[in-house]
Design a binder for these strands. Sequence first.
DNA 1: GCACGAATGTTCTGACAAAGAACAAAGTCG
DNA 2: CGACTTTGTTCTTTGTCAGAACATTCGTGC
Lengths: 406, 406
Amino acid sequence: MRKINTRSFVRATRWTPREINLQILLNLVREHEPISRAELARRMKIGRGMVTYLTAELIAQGALYEGDTVDSPRGRRPQMLYVRTHDRLVVAIDIRFSSTYIMLTDFSGNSIAMETFDTIEDLSALVPELRERVRRLLAVHGASRKCEGIGLVVPGMVDAVSGQVLNAPQLGWRNVDIRSPLEEALGLPVHVENAPIACALAKMWLGRPGAPVPTDFVYVTVSDGIGAGVVVNGQVVRGQTNSAGEFGHVPLTADGPACLCGGHGCLEVYTSNLATVCRYLGKEFSPATARALLPSSGVTIAEVVSRAIAGETRAIEALQETARHLGAGLSVIIKTLSPTQIVVGGEITEVWDLLEPTILREIGARALTDMAAATPIVPELASAYPRLRGGTALVSAPLFAAPRFA
Amino acid sequence: MRKINTRSFVRATRWTPREINLQILLNLVREHEPISRAELARRMKIGRGMVTYLTAELIAQGALYEGDTVDSPRGRRPQMLYVRTHDRLVVAIDIRFSSTYIMLTDFSGNSIAMETFDTIEDLSALVPELRERVRRLLAVHGASRKCEGIGLVVPGMVDAVSGQVLNAPQLGWRNVDIRSPLEEALGLPVHVENAPIACALAKMWLGRPGAPVPTDFVYVTVSDGIGAGVVVNGQVVRGQTNSAGEFGHVPLTADGPACLCGGHGCLEVYTSNLATVCRYLGKEFSPATARALLPSSGVTIAEVVSRAIAGETRAIEALQETARHLGAGLSVIIKTLSPTQIVVGGEITEVWDLLEPTILREIGARALTDMAAATPIVPELASAYPRLRGGTALVSAPLFAAPRFA
DNA sequence: GCACGAATGTTCTGACAAAGAACAAAGTCG
DNA sequence: CGACTTTGTTCTTTGTCAGAACATTCGTGC
């Protein structure tokens, strides 16, 4: 039951049913390809004539293409339909604290090429660098295929509408308009989004074909900070000020260590990668000392994780402690939003076997109901490049989104 | 950008534009009544002919009616349209720990009659009692007007689809099907909903005409427990297990007093009315002792509130302490959902002048951004009977809800 | 080898809502 | 009283949906 916003509504015209059904059809092909017109007609409960009509338009638009006919037990052989993704390219860019990743992918997220360089915080130097690299990638691997946009993923608060980076402390960016200069330099549409939301979009839009697609879930990213992308009713929640999903700064205890946000005992000061490494090093965590100490110590979260895999007790204990607090943090999400699942991303998922029992135990101890306790917690490995996949989703997903009416 | 759920979608037919536009039109009349056909045509950017056509159908359905013509500076006098609400009745029922409230209202929430009786937990006794009272109310005040349904508000977890009360600890109900026996006894459709969600629905659907209607907000109820109704994109969030919005059991500190939920330091143990009264009495709060102690002490939250209004220091201090913790709790909501506003309901709103500065100070101290710190916190007085208004909204709102497509 | 059935895909036609023009109604103003 | 303005209704045109009819292409049985 949704309320109609009478200050900004979309009236239906005589083309509205067409728009709606075209989009449903496109999504059905997406999730069931290869699929025949007759099968689509059955699934949509419309006549085959209508499907011919609708697919003709989608083929003309270049959204679908016809494949070969396939065998069938009797009758005319059906002609299979596919979504055109392999020759539509996206450049996904993931800007992180130390490194920036660029990946050339097709519309369904398949990687074509990838490169890395040290992050440049200065915008006037970053934009030319990106321009050169993107142009080279497209020249070498693009061939005749067309690039339809850039998906830029940033660790911080973003206004997706204006493309402004509102606040990205790791990069020292505040109210930086990165979209306009990039669009100008490359002549391509640029979509900017914050990392946890981008990861959530990738999960929702680029899942493996056939796999059930979640429409109510939370994607929690564990890196230098803790962020979350919240999806309700198949829609991302941005909140009034693009600051929804800041579960990292929910306090677990009122008198815990100070956090950069000004609070005390935030989830982040217990479970961020910085906190975990500090714990491993046996140092008291504080945001200031962490940033000073860690680079000099040379120990990274990846190092702690691999030592835990190798069986080092101190590393395992440090990660277990992180898992305990993470379980407490996830149970806050479960209580407040009751999602159908929570996806966890970040380096620590490499030792998920180690963390999972602890996390589930903490959640179970705090859950209000049995069903809440059973909320699936799903790890996503960093090796799947969820943020870059998110960058791809930024460009490709709008093509498949439901049209808005009423 | 919403994802289409390909397992349960609604295909558009040739009547779809009609359904959409009828609903937009109905909502425009609702929020701007009295309004003429020509004005509707301008707002919807369609021809006046189309408006005549659409309104004719709504009038035939009994959703709208024509009023008198009114003066206009020049030209033909416009004929005003109204939503038919005054002769469509709803019985709203609010079952609470000690008392049950029944109110007969019209479709826009105007009270016609109200009565109260001691809550009966036993379903086999409650249903006949409600049947008699509802029948009498309708016989006395109903006249020729038709009652279109019952809106039942319950303090606990509810599956709105099946009408089952999953868990209402204050009433001792667990998996109780109250809808079926009531529908059978009264021959009217019965809608069951939990209190905070019902309050949120009332806020969204029964706001004063002309007032801006929020579509992204959280309604926090402060009573024997703390509950919240979360509204995102004009839709209530129920979560996977109908347990979304349990902000009352978010821990503020890990080693606080024990809570009935099994956790420690939950928001609820600091800010519920039970906690406030215990604090006023100078007793250590614990859920078990509170329920035993309070009835015998004879002190209620209403008493504490009125003593605070009278200027009693101890009462003021007890409430200030509640406000401090409530501010901390609300800041969790702001961080995680970033709503455009938070509505607070409950007895303590009677002394809002006293509490507001404290709450805002706590929120300001914890906010991540200036805009988040400025999130409006709006009190709703108990004297407006928000829960009963919610009961009305349960029945009347579906008439105005946006049709679902794609 | 050829009719027949079964399934897929295309084309055609009727029905019906949207869009907009033309028209009727009902007022004001000079 | 007529010109003008605004509201509301009616009528015509247009274009899509829906379903029937038709074409296509395969396997199967005689």
